[in-house]
Structures are given as C-alpha cells and as structure tokens.
Amino acid sequence: MQVDYFIIAPSPYNSDGLKYRRHRLVEKLVKHSLTGTVYWICPYKTGSLNRRISQSKISKKMVEVRISEFKALFSSRRGFKNSLLKSLIADSSEKNKKVLWYSTPSYSGLTKYKIWDKIIYDCSDFWGSPWERGGSLLHLKSGIIDKVIRSSETKIIEESELIFASSAFLAKRISDIKEATVIENGVEFEQFSSSTDKKLCEIPSPKIGFIGGIKNKIDYNLLYRLSTSYPDYSIVLIGPNSTSGSSAKELESLKKLRNVYKIDGIDYSEVPSYMKSLDVGILPYKKIDYNQAVSPLKLFEYLATGIPVVGYGLPTTKKYSADGIYIHAETTKEFVEACEYSIAISNEERYIKNRKSVAEKHDWDNKLSQMINNTLLDIKN
C-alpha cells in the first residue's frame, strides 16, 4: 500500500525561511516507506488576476501546488473545486490511498469529494483570532474574514475522521464538535543538543535572545522595559520581520536602544548554534487571545541547547515551570526579574542537564510518528 498526502498549507513551502509544525510533518512523511507523493497545496500572491493553478516539484516525493489568492477567494464554488481537484489528482496514482490533511482551515469544499480515504485536521493555531486590530474599517474587514475562517474550520472539523491539536486550549475549542488528540510541538533533540559552535561573539554578554518570526504577536513594549532596566544586557532578536501597524512602530523604537541587536533571518541549520550562544532564551508574547493557544516551537529548542527560558503571555507553557529550567512570568516586573535570575544560573551544570532532559522527552520524531501511525491505522488495504 502507498499513500498520497494532500497537505493544505497557509503559504508556499519556503515562504519565509522558517520551519513550522507542518514542515516537520512533511519531512517525516517523505521519508516514510508507505508514502507515495506529498502535495503541498497553498495560496500565493501573483500580482494579477491569474486564475491558473501551478505545480512545481520540490523533491522526488514532494510537489507544491500553488493557487493564486484571487482564485482562492472562490474556493467554495463548484467550478473552482472541480478544477483544483482535477489538478491535484492528475499525477496521483489511482492505486494509492489518498489522505487530505489540513494544517490550515482553507479549501474546506474539498472535503465533500468521495475520493479521500481519510481526512485529517491538525490544528496548530487559533485561526480566526487576530494578532492586532487597526482602525474601524480594518476592524470591520478583519471581523468578516475571521467569521469566514471560523466557518471553514467548522466544516473541516465536521468532516475530519482524525483531529490533532497542538495545545489543550485548541483541543477544548474543538471539543464542542469533535474530540481532538493533543500533540504539542517538539524539538529535533539531537540536532539542538549536540550543537557546539557559537555565534554572536561580537555582541557583549550576557545575551538574552529571541529567535523566530518577528511578528505582531511579540510584545515589544515588554522587551523595551527589559532593555532599559538592564542596559548592560544585550537583547538579541533574530528572524524575519513581518510586523505592521503599531507593532512595527514599537519594534523601531526598541531597535534604537544601544543594547538591542536585530539580525535578519538565518539559515535554519544555524539556529542551534545561535541559540547555544545565548545566556537566556525568551518567549516574549503579548497577552492576547491568539497566544492563549500557542505551543511555542522555541521552548524545547532553547532547553535542548542547555539554556534557561523565560516566557510571558503563553499560558499553555505554565506547566513546564521549574527552577533553573523555565519561568513563566505574569507581569512585566516578574519577566524582567526572571531574566536577571536566569542569567545568574545559566551555566550551572545541574540545571543544564535538567533542561536537556526535559527537552529530550519532546523529540519531534516520537510526536510525528504517533500522528502518522494513527493516520495509517484505519486505512484499509
């Protein structure tokens, strides 16, 4: 038996250089002996009203299917669904089983076709909950989009035979319709724990840093308070910047401080080395609805490199709080003080061992194997 997977994704595979949960899944799938082809299906900006659906081969077992954003607006129309479906299955073997796997609640109309041997929804975000609101017109527009997203998500949940959620918060949201299995985000433990190279040598120590997408969901006012409270600490932000509105202004104010260092996106293979170079890893998130659901990828990555972590605005992580390992702060004052304390005990060997021990229990390989095995369980030959 061979299985073709049709992964519904929110953006092109290499859109921002970051690796998310869906990327790890695909990497695992293409290595699996029972996988035929993995199709990565996503919208993209064309700059025109181009109505074509384009395909490109990413690897021997993987094909990216791009759909113009304009065309995606009409995803519920029969003509669109028929043309998309025809495009998707054109190269798929008739003998292969077909799994429709949603990593984002788009193209819900595809669930109505009878060709799928299984439909799966892996919910890893609080879809339909915005990071930031603008003026009244933007608020109205965002509200309409949020309702469309939630409606599409409900349809997908109803049609899915198997549902995963990256946090208990998300599973609870879904539970009104169907039960979801909680599988939190993890870490490539061997890759992160074995890193010995160090970067950032030109930046003075101690170094407190965040590595990831520089987005609107990050609390830049919190970081401003940290930077001004301890001007001798170096605050390092590493990642591609996609901020907008008030968040972009707050970030610009933060970057003007002499002890703040902003580094653009780095190659993913270098992330462990950059993390290893920090004294403390931080998760400085805003206290907003969206972040209540976040299972941060960076928590176990930081810990795997042996450094302590301080978080804010991430209630899903409170259960991992432990002395010398992780502190989840409830106030700005607590966050600043927790960073100071974590620097003081950063290099203590007993804590380093404990941090790595916690991270090892959350290796991606085990989590993804569980998801794939559960998927294959009920697919009959």
Rank of each mutant, 00 (worst) to 15 (best):
T375N: 11
I119V: 00
K333T: 03
A359M: 02
S253E: 15
Y39Q: 02
I115R: 10
G245Q: 05
A248W: 01
N381D: 15
Y113M: 05
R24F: 14
Y233N: 05
K172A: 13
S108Y: 11
I67T: 01
M62P: 10
I345E: 05
V309T: 03
K95Y: 11
S242G: 12
Y113H: 08
K287M: 03
E349W: 10
K215N: 15
Y274W: 06
P315L: 07
R350M: 11
Y107G: 07
G47S: 04
D232P: 10
W40P: 06
C123V: 08
F189G: 11
G109V: 01
L100A: 02
K318D: 12
K356M: 01
F80L: 02
E158V: 00
Q2T: 15
F126C: 10
M275L: 12
S56M: 15
E69D: 10
Y302G: 04
I183F: 08
L303N: 08
E161G: 15
S167N: 07
K276R: 10
R78L: 12
G313N: 02
D279S: 10
K215M: 15
K147G: 12
T243L: 05
S76R: 14
L29V: 04
H23M: 02
V182D: 05
I119H: 09
W127G: 10
V65I: 03
